[in-house]
């Protein structure tokens, strides 16, 4: 009987163990990025910009040329890289502590200028690497080490919805929010990621994808419970879908 390989590790993904905790969504997002680069035949032509956070070791896991940016400044570094080498494909890979907090100015202006770069934004509602502090995306009532009785709306405000903010900026060509908790959502995530990469390749503008991800260790949950929390608590506040897409005219004024 003949058989074919239905699934194997994509070639741009390094054949080594990651430093991520069991059940961490970073591994899934890394694989989606590697698969999309491979499918679009961009691997040899890509310069990645990695950020600070758990994803800081991106260059150990995705075998493309990578620039390490200071905390939050990945979109600014990517702007420089893309303007110096406009023939290259440039993407940044950032977490929510990096992009939505210290890097807010850089991401807003990068999107507003319509830089031809793509941003992979992993939102797990917490600072993972530094030990579980409150992030701008932490949900109201969520307990972290810096809000041990839960985030309070009166003193800390509401979680920031980044995909909607980026979609409202003029230079954005594509802004979407996806999740990585189920197979259905994974398929949608891969399509969204491909579109965010395509708008850069086609020179249409800035591409942005927000991934709703888990952090089982800092949420103090098992991997399975953490995965369920995405559907139960995160998706109701962070709705999935495309918020802007210049190729279909959605969200374009």
């Amino acid at each position: 009987m003949t058989e074919k390989i239905a699934f194997e590790r994509p070639k741009p993904l390094a054949d080594r163990a990651t430093h991520y905790c069991p059940g961490c969504s970073h591994g899934i997002v890394h694989r989606l990025v590697a698969e999309t680069l491979q499918d679009m035949d961009l691997v040899e032509n890509t310069i990645a910009v990695s950020a600070i956070g758990c994803s800081v070791f991106l260059y150990n896991y995705i075998m493309v040329d990578t620039v390490e940016a200071p905390h939050g400044r990945a979109p600014a570094v990517a702007t420089g890289v893309k303007r110096a080498r406009p023939d290259r494909f440039v993407f940044t890979y950032q977490g929510d502590g990096d992009l939505a907090s210290i890097g807010m100015a850089e991401i807003m202006h990068c999107a507003n200028r319509g830089e031809r770069v793509s941003v992979v934004f992993v939102n797990n509602t917490i600072y993972g690497m530094t030990g579980g502090q409150m992030a701008p995306t932490t949900l109201v009532g969520q307990k972290t080490t810096t809000c041990p009785s839960g985030r309070c709306r009166d003193s800390e405000g509401m979680p920031i919805r980044m995909a909607e903010i980026i979609a409202s900026l003029g230079g954005t060509a594509y802004a979407s929010r996806v999740a990585v908790d189920t197979i259905k959502h994974l398929n949608q995530a891969k399509k969204a990621l491909r579109k965010a990469f395509e708008v850069q390749v086609n020179g249409l503008g800035f591409g942005f994808v927000e991934f709703l991800a888990t952090c089982p260790t800092n949420w103090k949950m098992s991997s399975i419970d953490a995965n369920k929390r995405i559907a139960e608590e995160m998706i109701p506040y962070f709705p999935l879908g495309d918020f802007k897409d210049v190729t279909t005219g959605k969200g374009v004024c």
Binding site: E3, K4, F7, E8
Partner: peptide, 27 residues
């Protein structure tokens, strides 16, 4: 394999007789 964060799993799928692997498919 799709949900595995550590790409631990490789999947082999049976090809039915008379259904050859199409040219250009990954397998």
């Amino acid at each position: 394999a799709m949900i595995c964060p550590d790409t631990v799993i490789t999947v082999y799928k049976t090809v039915k007789p008379g259904q050859p692997v199409k040219p250009g498919e990954p397998g």
